[in-house]
Write a protein that binds this DNA or RNA. Sequence first.
DNA 1: TTGTACGCGTTATCAT
DNA 2: ATGATAACGCGTACAA
Lengths: 339, 339
Amino acid sequence: MPRPTINDVARAAGVSKGAVSFALNNKPGVAPETRKRILDVARDLGWTPSAHARALSTSQAFAVGLVIMRPPETLRSDKFFISFISGAETVLAEEGFALLLQVVPDPQREHLAYRRLAEAGRVDGVFVTDLFVDDVRPALLAEIGLPALVIGPPQDDLGQPAVGIDDAPGITAAVDHLIALGHTRIAHVAGPDFMVHGRSRRGAWSAAIERAGLREGPCIEADFSAEAGAAATMALLDLADPPTAIVYANDLMAMAGLSLAVARGLDVPGDLSITGYDDTEIAAHMQPPLTTVTSDAIAWGRAAAIRLLELIRQEPPTATVLPPAHLIIRGSTGPARPS
Amino acid sequence: MPRPTINDVARAAGVSKGAVSFALNNKPGVAPETRKRILDVARDLGWTPSAHARALSTSQAFAVGLVIMRPPETLRSDKFFISFISGAETVLAEEGFALLLQVVPDPQREHLAYRRLAEAGRVDGVFVTDLFVDDVRPALLAEIGLPALVIGPPQDDLGQPAVGIDDAPGITAAVDHLIALGHTRIAHVAGPDFMVHGRSRRGAWSAAIERAGLREGPCIEADFSAEAGAAATMALLDLADPPTAIVYANDLMAMAGLSLAVARGLDVPGDLSITGYDDTEIAAHMQPPLTTVTSDAIAWGRAAAIRLLELIRQEPPTATVLPPAHLIIRGSTGPARPS
DNA sequence: TTGTACGCGTTATCAT
DNA sequence: ATGATAACGCGTACAA
């Protein structure tokens, strides 16, 4: 029993294909009573329009793409993606859009993936995540002619459409919190400087310290991985004048750093205060629980999906208010030991 | 500049549509030299067949679906999904298949999602994950007529197509390892008993203990969340005769338990040995590093994709050998304190 | 409201 | 053996 087609419905309802199409899409030109009959028949037959037939005639795919690049290390917390997708889905599903996911190992294949998705007409638009500084993807996608929405803080230079929760306020709050606790040597374990969210977090840390009139603490660039977080922490603790607090660019590095500090016999937060970023699920269950920054990834996903659909439909952007990233204070931060 | 169509290519190459199609799909009936000319023209014009047109005429979607249910708590480690998808992708991309991802909040909407995907003809088959005991989804999908592949250990009862890495050997290895270290009171913090991978891990724990002639230790059912893991650990440590080792059904619970134990002043592994399951990235960076079980989720994803495509094409299964889950011994397990 | 062309490949039928 | 022709899959949209 193959799926029923619009013709089956039309025949059964005693009308033409066109009438069925109009009835389905709530277009005028069908008497209310006829419309009802058609819809009833459609329901009885269990008919749903074929996504492909529809796509073929409207030259729209009713789908959007998300390509995630997975290099050796974790760029963004996995939790972020699941939550983000979950939020985006709520909007997409409602609008009849599907989400096409692709995971690629390197930039070359990421570009290829975008090309293929566009050339095969599989998607109407894509999300672009984990933006690099001077990322070539927006240009590439513009050339391909595929609507693209950047997930992340809007780039200052060009008018690239973007939806993002600014990292800065979260990091700023963390630094201010530490300063209020009396810390004066506040270090930073940063994400890669070539990534937008690595750089912006570092910038926020640096600016907050300067604003407070403190001299900038040491900063070590890492790659968001636990491994690198531990190594960076080791290097910081080995300094002649080690910091009394470390602000990490993500939870993974912070938790690795926390463990390392404890292993070296330090008391956290007595000897060293630590803050993370992401509020991953284990963060609250570390010993001590990790002070960290959280943002509503689900709301973010929702807003991003709305914006991408607007982009696809060439509609003007509706104003979006995303709750800013905010600090969650837990046990890993405490008063600086008087020196 | 709209995308070129097969007609454009045919015209430019001076042949018919059919010839282009045959040339593209490596079908006989086209002279080698003509074929080359056609393919050259196609490349020059940058033509790729429209996925939708192709889908429409072959009544295949060239896509598979993955619906993930995200209830309040995390069922499977996020890392698992990303790795699994990454592995599946390598196969799917090669075969020209796309992966359609949907994240739903509850079973009702999960069923609806499957229905919609099938009715709209968006997918040719789906993966089914996080199987429940007596799960209704296989039956539902059978009724819908959508090829479905269960991701997880094959169900004993019915011949449901499944590709899975058996959890049991990993848990067995963990228990045996603890027994070898002299532990005799080995507890288990289990996943939900209504989930296949919760139940099978518990069964493996129980069987390994019995095999060693020990009396079964206490077992507390939790839900794979850090919160529940901490609560279960608390309950176990409050027993009159607390265990000297705890086997957790996943890393998240194990790490929360580890932190709780440390917070209560216990020495791990001196007073309490702990094992997890998943080998999440932070596991190795806990203090002490977590002994845990790992399985190759990427290979799993690859094997699953291969099998699902076979299912879709009604081909017989090729033999697949997946590396079994294995124990990674780290610092969270040690000799039982002589009592 | 209906009839019909159209979107774009695939494939069965025919002609050379 | 090569290749052309035409029907088909399923909705949408426009003219009638």
